[in-house]
């Protein structure tokens, strides 16, 4: 399923809203999650899961082509952990 298909499915169930409006709402939801993680906040959605930042330490890496050692700076990456209900559903128990 793509974002466009997600929007279509919801627009079909909500005839009071235009496709454009639904698209706008979906984007707002995704943007608000992104913005929260950008300010190092975490997002907890019960039954769905939680999004938070994971910190990666700086490390020495190697350029695989030249074998040269390069330092890889510390990083922050988005991380998602499925909630209980989501886990059970996907595993066929929900």
């Amino acid at each position: 399923m793509t974002k466009a298909e997600l929007v279509d499915q919801i627009a079909e169930k909500k005839p009071g809203l235009t496709r454009k409006e639904v698209e706008n709402i979906v984007s707002t939801v995704l943007d608000s999650i992104k913005a929260a993680l950008a300010r190092e906040d975490k997002v907890e959605i019960r039954g769905f899961g939680s999004f938070r930042i994971r910190y990666r330490r700086a490390k020495d890496g190697r350029n695989p082509k030249t074998g040269e050692t390069v330092s890889v700076p510390p990083k922050k990456v988005p991380f998602f952990k499925a909630g209980k209900e989501m886990k059970e559903m996907v595993d066929g128990k929900g």
């Binding site: 997600l6 909500k14 809203l17």
Partner: peptide
């Protein structure tokens, strides 16, 4: 709407 979005993703 927010519930629908989350549910639709979960169902998929």
């Amino acid at each position: 709407l927010v519930e629908m979005i989350l549910d639709t993703i979960k169902q998929a």
